[in-house]
Amino acid sequence: MSFLFAALTVAMLLCAFLAFRARHLIVSALWLAGCSAILSILMYLLGAYWIAVIELSVGAGLVTVLFVFAISIAGDESAEFRSSIPRPIALIISLVSIILLGFMTISSLIALPPATEATFSEVLWQQRGLDMLVQSGLLFAAVVGILGLLSEAKVPVEEKKTAPAKELQAGRPVVKPATAAAREAKA
């Protein structure tokens, strides 16, 4: 069990890492989906069944779909740039942060035996009900925000590079999955 868990963790990290190595955006999105799928297995193994299911459907499923949509509209810029800050610096910064965090935390974390606790839906709906209410407000803001960013009343006048008209129209469908995503996630 522990070995399987460790192997899956390594696989997940590998997926995450490959998401940045990929030359094509679409491949990158797919590696992310893989990472997400393995994550949901890990969660399942940890006993978090509900969240595993949701992560699989939203994280691995829906988000990937969104990414693919977006990439297909924006066009897959496959050209690999040099990173804007030197890679060694980036590496040092990220390594030092996680090493420090790990050093400060890992030794004190011991799993406690499960406390008697309300069921998942009870916790979610009765103890965390306010969060859910706030979230509906948040979703409203998000929907309006996305509408505001993407809906096109008229064709924009100034464009640096002439974006094909097809893309402009294709801008609309993204809105629907977004709201659908919101609804689905809420449910």
Binding site: A48, W50, I51, L112, P113, P114, A115, E117, F120, V123
Partner: peptide
């Protein structure tokens, strides 16, 4: 913490 359902939600 033994409160998996809280963490999940």
């Amino acid at each position: 913490s033994g409160k998996l359902n809280l963490g999940q939600s």
